[in-house]
Design a binder for these strands. Structure first.
Lengths: 338, 338
DNA sequence: TCGCCACATCTTCAATGGTAGCCATTCATA
DNA sequence: TATGAATGGCTACCATTGAAGATGTGGCGA
């Protein structure tokens, strides 16, 4: 493996001059530049990334923390972030926390060990008080997940409004007994959704059926269990609010298997407009988030912070949802495909 | 940010002794070790990763190259690889090539810049001749994708056999005119699938309907287009072999929308046993790969190579598939759910 | 014409944070 | 007596770049 020393010797110049050519810095004549480029080519020279990072104190790398890439919402979010980061000359590394407080802190350690320049957090496992000290080692931006406190930039959708609207939709479709199905996370985002849900119930003078609600549903399989739980213990339930399309898909699938009519016996709403929600039969009513826009903004905000560390502007970037009404909630009407 | 120098001073020892404690090396008394650990704690010292990598010439990091994480097959593969790599003290970085030759080479550059110790390639965009020189910079293991030439370790399923069996299944279900739907990739794996498909046709004396076959189907949307193409131009087609559940889902969805009876009018097989294939109506017959096993083996093989660079053992680890028969192919029988 | 200053172009030196290798001393064992 | 292990320190190095220094040239003013 050739080093910059080898290139300098072959070109008959100093290492610093070679470095200037590599980094496109001024004060090197064109003739010497060509000599250096040729020497690099002959030797197959490639800069050593560790050396550059150590000396320059920069990695040009961003870590994105998320729960699971097997959740298509996060897979799509990463997809867009990578594209945007690459445009700014940054590399993205994907860190799956699997909703573990420990893992989240392990990954935040990347800031301390100087393996990344900044971090995007798409979920929050630890309390903010635990995370905040890491800001000393580099900037953090929240995307998707958010909190009341304005400590760092946050890019997200209004989850309260989204939950409110999809619950109103369920109620408008005639649902009177609605189950609230969540993943049990006690984050602010989860609270917001529930607040929106409860607000809709309150406005329409419907009771919150806490006993029929579930706080352990994350995967499709969980959704199937949710349905069976409702069928066996709360058969009066005629509507289900879920926090993800995966769970909604599980509920719908199991209900259909059990011979229930969806949505007449049970209406279901999901979240995130995953491909699954369209392809199911019946197709699932869901909330669409502007994933690409949020991803782009997130990277932009973080990179600006890296370029200008003094401009520590903590602010919110709030995006609107879209309710996609499909067959899992449309009752007593001619079933048409949307 | 404290350095090892600061810790050494506070502990009243040399940097080397501190380093020995950090790296769990011998020849440091327990008393001195405690002094060092305490000093590290007081100073909040964290080793600088770039410095360690530069000096030790190791990153303890593995790059996994894959086409898209939005494809659940690869998302699940990564999930398992990360778990396994972590057990061996390695970090995984995810590199999406999006089937681009250029991106693939860009990521292989990580070997040359010393940003990763080894690479797992789950697909092949470039010819092997282009990739082989990178072996000088670090080991490469193929997982999922494979080639005839035994140049590096390869961990994969027998795609020929899998394609053969699912095609025979289509034929056994009465299909006489089968469309071969692929993504157009000209890799060995793609060839193997086609070979298995053609072998099944040949054994059952059925013609290969090249004009009705498609080589541009990757996403769900493509699958929908495939169906419309068949409906409009090749209505005699009564069976579709696809290389992925996403494509199969698109075909099935569009066929049902068009009022076709699946599988009586058109039987469809997918690949990879994505959740989608179970939740569709009708559920999609598919091929299941032992994803976790292949992932584990891949990491193990690569890590062993990193630990013992001389043991450059290029060999194949071949895994069997499982055909999951579901409703998209079961004809003329009582429709029961599997 | 000469001296001074600014700029251009390069080189030299040192720094980044950590660790690999070698050395010195002492003690125990064959 | 010779050798190896234990316990630590010192030195140099890993590959690159940031900062300072050296040198030459051109322009301007006295």
């Amino acid at each position: 493996m050739a080093t910059i020393e080898d290139v300098a010797k072959l070109a008959g110049l100093s290492r610093t001059t070679v470095s200037r050519v590599i980094n496109d810095q001024p004060y090197v004549t064109e003739e010497k530049k060509q000599r250096i480029l040729q020497a690099m080519d002959e030797l197959g020279y490639v800069p050593n990334s560790s050396a550059r990072r150590l000396r320059s104190q920069r990695t040009d790398t961003i870590a994105v923390l998320l729960p699971r890439i097997t959740n298509p919402f996060f897979a799509n979010l990463i997809e867009s972030m990578e594209k945007k980061a690459s445009q700014w000359g940054y590399q993205v590394i994907v860190c799956q926390t699997h909703d573990s407080e420990k893992k989240e802190l392990d990954y935040l350690q990347l800031l301390k060990t100087k393996q990344v320049d900044g971090v995007v957090m798409t979920s929050l496992c630890n309390d903010w008080e635990v995370i905040e000290p890491y800001l000393e080692s580099g900037p953090i931006v929240l995307c998707n997940e958010y909190m009341e406190e304005m400590a760092v930039p946050m890019v997200h959708m209004d989850h309260r409004k989204a939950a409110y609207e999809s619950t109103i939709h369920l109620i408008d479709q005639g649902c009177k007994n609605i189950s609230y199905v969540s993943g049990g996370s006690d984050t602010y985002l989860a609270e917001e959704r529930k607040t929106g849900f409860l607000k809709a119930l309150e406005e329409r003078a419907l009771p919150f059926l806490e006993a029929a609600s579930v706080d352990w549903a994350i995967h499709v399989e969980d959704g199937r269990k949710v349905f069976n739980h409702i069928k066996d213990h709360h058969p009066i339930i005629d509507g289900v609010f879920t926090g993800s399309d995966e769970v909604a898909a599980g509920v719908v699938y199991e209900a259909v298997q059990a011979g229930w009519n969806v949505p007449d016996d049970l209406a279901v709403v999901g979240f995130d407009n995953q491909m699954l929600s369209l392809l199911m039969f019946p197709s699932v009513t869901t909330i669409d988030q502007p994933v690409a826009k949020m991803a782009d903004r997130t990277i932009e905000v973080l990179v600006r912070q890296l370029m200008n560390p003094r401009a520590n502007k903590a602010r919110r970037y709030i995006y609107s949802h879209k309710l996609l009404v499909r067959n899992s909630t449309l009752k007593k009407q001619l079933v048409t495909n949307l």
